[in-house]
Amino acid sequence: MASLAIRHVALSSKSAKSALGYIYLKCHVKPGASKQREGIVSISENVIEVCVSAQAREGESNKAVREVISSVLNCPKSDVEIVRGMKSRNKTVAIEGIDIKGDEEKCISGIREKFENAVDD
């Protein structure tokens, strides 16, 4: 089975009263795009395509990816972290502290909808 673009990873806690955890996003980043193209380009079952105007050097594009994703999800940049692919165009981005409120599928659908609405036509 192919890895999904958006998935939930629960935090392991002995006294978990809520379903806090991480949302993992599988992204393909296109650095050096024009400022007008910056943002979410497309979303499929397997990957979210992100264009950023920052160049791929000294972490500039990674910072821009974090800014784009935090903007789309309306969450603090400090909750967005690149956990895999720091020097690659293929990245795994973790969003911290998402409370799925007992319905993982509904939460992921809501996040997917936010990304779909962010795609420029």
Rank of each mutant, 00 (worst) to 15 (best):
Q36W: 02
R89M: 07
A19C: 08
I111Y: 02
I6M: 03
K26R: 14
N74R: 11
S15P: 10
S18A: 05
A5P: 13
V93K: 00
P76S: 01
E81H: 08
V72G: 05
I98T: 12
G59V: 07
L73A: 12
V68S: 00
K35D: 15
V68K: 13
E116P: 14
S13D: 08
E58Y: 14
H28N: 09
D103Y: 06
L11I: 14
I108N: 00
Q55A: 14
C51K: 11
A10V: 09
K106G: 10
L73P: 11
R7K: 07
V52K: 00
L20I: 15
K35H: 13
S18V: 14
E105L: 13
H8Y: 10
F115S: 07
R37C: 11
S71L: 07
I40A: 03
D120N: 13
P31I: 04
V52C: 00
I43R: 07
K106I: 14
K26F: 07
V72A: 09
K30H: 06
D121K: 08
K77C: 08
Y24C: 15
E38R: 13
V93I: 14
S109Y: 04
S42Y: 06
L25R: 11
F115D: 08
C107N: 03
K17H: 06
T92F: 02
I6P: 05
K91A: 02
E58A: 13
D121H: 10
R7D: 06
S70E: 04
I100N: 11
I69Y: 03
E116W: 03
K17L: 10
K101D: 05
I43N: 04
I98C: 09
S70F: 10
S53T: 12
V9L: 02
G59S: 02
